[in-house]
Structure formats: structure tokens, C-alpha cells
Amino acid sequence: MTPPLVLDIDGTLTRPDTWGIDPRIFDPLRAWDAPVVLATGKAFPYPVALCHFAGIPELVVAENGGVVYTGEEVHFTADPDAPRAVAEAYEDAGYSLGWGPEDTVNRWRETEIAVEHSQPETPLRELAAEHGLEVIDSGYAYHVKDPAVDKGAGVEAVADAVGFDLAETVAVGDSENDAATFEVVGHSVAVSNADEVAKAAADEVLETAHADGTLSVLERVRDGS
């Protein structure tokens, strides 16, 4: 039987040269005959759009668990006010979120904020702590979020709503925000470009990176090996 999947996006479904989605992932996901959950640190519209382009049902955990979509109902699991206050204080201190004036990274973000990697990390962490929040590094950005919220809890909520067994589920990811997902599934896989937190949390660490690694897992799991 084909197992359900939980897949991160950046660093997991992407190409190493551009960080764009590797188009080779579309056909296997479209043909997958079990639930596929996209669990990401990206803002909610991004994984929903990816589901559309892939032609798969919209099962989404976005913003590191802050937004959960079961295909029928959207759940917001964190309050946006504190992250926004951190962003305001960070900018008042003379720093920038790093995405330019239109900030399409945060424009549609509902429950957290993301700060570009070129920006100072230490003052961001200090401000986040003052507001009872944490900063996690997705490998793409620094995310200021509620510490009580994570991808794992979001994945559990989707599994409960859809009715699939997490013990039979395979997850693939690449960064510390995937560790919580790895804790709730039956088998977890870190691609070779994963950070040390993800590798330590995973049941298996691949020798191949990015979408190459993920595609190898999908092929192996589909073939039952």
C-alpha cells in the first residue's frame, strides 16, 4: 500500500541552483494514490498554489504550523500580533526584514514573520524572546513564531481530519523546522543538504540533496522497498 507523504518545500522539492521547484516532482505527486501534505515555513498561499500546479488535493501546513488547511477548513493556530510587534521593533531599531518595500514574503503571512538571512540574527532573537516568541532558521529565512506551534502538530491535525495513519506516513525535509514533523510520522528522511537538527531527528539521512533526494525516496517507497 502506498503510504501518505509529508513533504517540506524549500530545500526538499527544489533545485539546488535556483531554489525553484524542480518540475520533476509534479508527475509522481500527481500519481500518488495516498494523501500528500505540504508542510512548509512559507506563507499560506504558496503551498496552496503548489498543490494547484501539481494537481493534488490542498492539504497544507503553512507558516511552520501557524496555518493548517485540511482541504475543507482553514485553522489559524497562532496570534499574529506578537510577531508583527517584533517586526516593528526590529525595524524601529534600524534593521530591515530584508525583502524590499513590497515584501512579498510577509505580505500574505498570517501568524509569523520571516526575516532574510542577510539581516542581523542576534537582535532579532532578543526581541523575539522579549515577546515570548522563538526564532527558527528554515535555511531560507529566520522565522519569528509562537514556540507552542510547529509543523508536527499541524500534520497531526491534517491526519485527524483526513483520516490517515501517521504511523504509516513518510516525511521528507531539510531543516530544523521539520524535526517536529519527523517526530510524529512512521518514517522520516532528511535530504543530504539538511541541517544538523533535521539530520539528527531523521530516521534516515540521504546521500543525495534537494529534489534529487526526495525523488529517490518517492521512487523507493512507491516500489515498496
Rank of each mutant, 00 (worst) to 15 (best):
E116D: 14
H210T: 03
R107D: 13
R30C: 05
Y140T: 15
G20I: 00
K199Y: 03
N177G: 14
V6L: 09
A201W: 06
T104N: 04
A129Q: 13
T14V: 04
T18P: 05
A114M: 13
T18Y: 00
D146E: 12
N193T: 07
G71K: 05
T122L: 12
G139K: 07
G154H: 08
A54F: 01
V115P: 04
H143I: 02
W32G: 04
T12Y: 07
E176H: 04
D178P: 06
P3H: 08
T214C: 04
D17K: 01
I113F: 03
V197G: 02
V61Q: 00
I9C: 06
V86T: 10
V197A: 10
I21G: 07
S225N: 09
V221R: 05
G213K: 09
V221H: 01
V105M: 14
E91A: 07
E168R: 09
V191C: 07
L218N: 09
P120H: 08
R84D: 11
A34R: 02
V61A: 02
F164G: 15
P120V: 06
D165E: 15
V60C: 03
I56H: 02
E168F: 01
L38T: 01
D103Q: 03
T18Q: 01
T2R: 14
D165C: 10
C51Y: 01
Y95N: 14
P4S: 06
I113N: 10
A180T: 15
E58W: 07
R24M: 09
T122Y: 14
F53T: 05
G173I: 10
T169P: 15
I136D: 08
V184R: 10
E134Q: 13
S188E: 12
S216Q: 11
Y95E: 15
L97F: 03
D103H: 03
F26K: 06
D137I: 07
L127Q: 11
A87D: 07
K145S: 09
V217R: 02
L166K: 08
S96N: 08
A202M: 11
Y46T: 14
P47T: 00
E168T: 07
C51M: 07
P3A: 13
I9D: 08
A153N: 13
V170I: 15
D79V: 09
R15Y: 00
T181K: 07
V105P: 04
P147I: 03
N64V: 06
F53L: 01
D160S: 10
F26I: 02
A209I: 01
E183A: 15
V149F: 10
G55T: 03
G163F: 11
S188I: 04
W32I: 02
H131C: 09
H187V: 04
F182C: 11
A148F: 07
P16I: 00
S188K: 14
T104Y: 12
W99I: 14
F164V: 11
A157M: 15
L13K: 03
V67W: 05
L7D: 06
V74L: 08
P23G: 00
R84K: 14
P16Q: 01
D160R: 15
V155P: 13
A141D: 02
P83I: 01
T214A: 04
G139R: 11
S188G: 05
